[in-house]
Computed example of a mutant assay.
Amino acid sequence: MSSPLEIELQNNCHAWDPALYNDTNYGYVPSLAAGIVFTVLFGLSMIAHTVQFIWTRWWWCSVFSVGAMVEVLGWAGRAWSSQCPYMLTPFLMQISTLIIAPAFFTAGIYVILGRLINVLGRSSSILSPALYLWIFCTCDIISLVVQAIGGGMASSEAGKVDGDTKPGTDIMVAGIVFQLASITVFAVCVFDFLRRILKQRLLRTVQGNVTPLLLAMMFSIVLIYIRSIYRVIELVQGWSGYLITHEAYFIALDGSMMVPAVAIFNFVHPGWFMPTRKSVDDFEQVSMNERLVT
């Protein structure tokens, strides 16, 4: 049962004072500078994505805005915790948001691949665009729900004296491992997609350079993959493990991975870089030119 002092610290803001109480919810005092920097960076990306999807009317790109907004809430919670490290509310706020935010980014990437398949033709993929969305977005939702449930259970127990965080942590790990597995399968599908479009020379059938969008998609997936591996190892070690009680790893392998993972699509926005199918006349002209060259 919590003591009156612990209840007071969890519910009201008190600056860190080892003489008052040495332990915090994190095992350290979160960095205010890191909290502000990442809140600003994700906030700028969120604003840019919002302007971009409204300007281009590519409404599905709002998933990037939503993901960035969830990241903003999480890092704002960590900035809040830097001033109130014993307080439970900002601690729970950052756990529940930062664990699920990447699911919105992967959802956007799944849609990008589906759109590319639509443009390049059904022969460019082993699965139809609709199946990609159904399979991988469903996996994303399942992963998100499982992680949210586990995060809620673990964080509520973390705020209790002698609370048992293991059941919730195990559920969170299961959700992240499931997400990691679905990303792995998706990466294999992307590799097959690239193999097919190169083998069938499908890039000549579209107008526009698709390379930047393909590179951005793969770049983002790699960063999310690294972050997910880190999160699995972190949580397997437990709430008092080495990784989770050293903020430098969280900054380097979570925040620093997720900023470029979403910001890359501010610079390589699908609304600007998605190619279009060439007309029949354009394609015939290309084929004629190729025959003349050979």
Rank of each mutant, 00 (worst) to 15 (best):
residue 149 I to L: 13
residue 201 R to G: 01
residue 48 A to S: 15
residue 92 L to Q: 15
residue 227 R to E: 09
residue 204 R to I: 11
residue 12 N to Y: 02
residue 263 A to P: 02
residue 97 T to V: 06
residue 288 M to N: 09
residue 230 Y to G: 04
residue 68 A to M: 13
residue 271 G to M: 07
residue 263 A to H: 09
residue 58 W to Q: 11
residue 134 W to D: 01
residue 222 V to Q: 10
residue 290 E to F: 01
residue 178 F to W: 10
residue 47 I to Y: 09
residue 255 G to V: 02
residue 211 T to K: 13
residue 213 L to W: 11
residue 52 Q to T: 08
residue 82 S to V: 06
residue 263 A to F: 15
residue 7 I to F: 05
residue 281 D to G: 00
residue 183 I to H: 09
residue 80 W to A: 08
residue 142 I to S: 00
residue 48 A to H: 10
residue 91 F to V: 02
residue 273 F to M: 12
residue 177 V to L: 13
residue 3 S to H: 03
residue 94 Q to A: 06
residue 50 T to R: 03
residue 248 A to F: 09
residue 125 S to L: 06
residue 80 W to I: 02
residue 208 G to W: 03
residue 161 V to N: 15
residue 14 H to K: 04
residue 69 M to I: 13
residue 3 S to A: 03
residue 4 P to N: 08
residue 244 I to P: 03
residue 247 E to N: 04
residue 78 R to P: 04
residue 136 F to N: 01
residue 188 V to F: 15
residue 260 P to M: 15
residue 225 Y to W: 15
residue 111 V to T: 06
residue 224 I to F: 04
residue 22 N to R: 12
residue 60 W to L: 01
residue 174 A to N: 02
residue 71 E to P: 10
residue 253 L to Y: 06
residue 243 L to I: 07
residue 81 S to V: 04
residue 212 P to H: 11
residue 12 N to V: 00
residue 9 L to F: 02
residue 151 G to M: 04
residue 210 V to M: 10
residue 47 I to W: 11
residue 168 G to S: 11
residue 230 Y to F: 15
residue 10 Q to D: 12
residue 294 T to S: 08
residue 206 V to Y: 12
residue 282 D to K: 12
residue 168 G to H: 11
residue 49 H to Q: 14
residue 26 Y to T: 01
residue 218 M to T: 15
residue 100 I to L: 08
residue 76 A to T: 12
residue 206 V to E: 06
residue 159 G to H: 12
residue 23 D to S: 12
residue 48 A to D: 10
residue 189 C to M: 14
residue 245 T to H: 04
residue 72 V to M: 14
residue 149 I to C: 09
residue 7 I to K: 14
residue 65 S to A: 15
